[in-house]
Design a protein around this nucleic acid. Structure first.
Lengths: 201, 201
DNA sequence: TCGTTGATGATACGAGCGTATCAATGCCGA
DNA sequence: TCGGCATTGATACGCTCGTATCATCAACGA
């Protein structure tokens, strides 16, 4: 066989090319030809590794989740150890909010995928997410830890608070991307609610 | 001239056909031909009233805003008069949350437009919204009134709270449409936060 | 009454899309 | 060494899209 190439590496190369296009010009512009050009390969190669367009789209999504996960982890690791649960929650949410170019691109791309599902709900069924609620459960755990540490009022329900914080952050993010609000103001609103949620140190 | 037809009525007929398609099959399926068929007119007529696709899209958006505004107003009117500011806020937010078919369709369609702007930011510039932040300002006013009535802690900032509640509701709505959460659970999360925000009666 | 003009219809065009087809290439096991 | 197969390339097909073109119809002002 010709130079035996690592399939997974090739798929990643192509999948990330798609993400790059989606982030800058939208998923609509991410035709198979465009993806091939962006990845520096032929159209046929894209077809070879992802038999169909849907496979390409769904196959690329995990690389996006990977990027976001790595970003959050890096922010948390930067807190020093052991970090206070409150600081972990704040860091994770602020990592999700679209403030710099990376987070803006991640969010824009996620929203593009969300729109794809809107248009064709059958796509959601085909996609077997590893765990779409992983972040929310992680936050729930950290909030419970914050309660144990006395940083959060004991009568709060960590699950509801985590769901609310994530929805708040996502909603703020959408308003930033939509141009309704600057990322600075969005951060201010998020911090306002976090400050009221947690007890003063 | 041939039967002088009311232009505005025709535009509305076509625009609402587009909204119907967008709500059910996505904005991607809303080609000019499909819109023409849905509206029961010829393709040429769609071109006649909206010279270009962009005009059709942007021209239809106000009808959607109208629908949402009417829905919110109806909910508020149903509260009796004069309604407590707190109840107005709750009713408005619950009207926005996608719980029944109407609110689901409205939200789905809004999100489809949002995705359109993602793909082509120049569209946002072409669209002169009457007031995209009208709802947020309305909520801010109601929250200030709630403070005056002692329903809301005096040290809260109504603007930040309004922004937060709207972002929370939008984020929850997206998770419902995305299939991550049922509308019942989303309502529960929203009510949880509203209950904690306002003083017990 | 008649020609001007607003309103509608039928059809064509070029581009981009996803997908399919048919070859070439080069490495490795037997 | 050689034949088969994994890998890559070039190109074609059929479809739908937005848009443009040309023709037709009906009413009102003069």
């Amino acid at each position: 066989m010709p130079q035996r190439v690592d399939h997974e590496q090739r798929r990643r190369q192509i999948g990330e090319a798609l993400l790059r296009i989606a982030a800058t010009r939208g998923l609509l512009a991410a035709s198979m030809r465009e993806v091939a050009a962006e990845a520096g390969v032929s159209l046929r190669l894209v077809q070879y590794y992802f038999h169909t367009k849907d496979e390409l789209l769904l196959g690329s999504l995990p690389y996006l989740a990977e990027r976001l996960g790595a970003r959050i982890e890096a922010r948390i690791r930067a807190l020093g150890s052991p970090p206070a649960p409150r600081d972990v929650v704040v860091a994770a949410l602020e990592a999700v909010l679209p403030t710099d170019q990376e987070s803006r691109q991640i969010r824009t791309t996620y929203d593009a995928f969300y729109a794809l599902v809107l248009a064709d709900p059958s796509l959601a069924a085909k996609y077997e997410a590893k765990d779409p609620d992983a972040l929310e459960r992680f936050l729930t755990g950290q909030l419970a830890a914050a309660q144990a540490a006395g940083e959060l009022a004991a009568d709060h329900d960590p699950g509801h608070v985590a769901a609310g914080l994530l929805a708040l952050t996502n909603g703020l993010g959408a308003s930033v991307i939509g141009g309704q609000r600057s990322s600075e103001v969005a951060t201010e609103v998020l911090d306002y609610h976090l400050d009221r949620l947690f007890r003063p140190r």
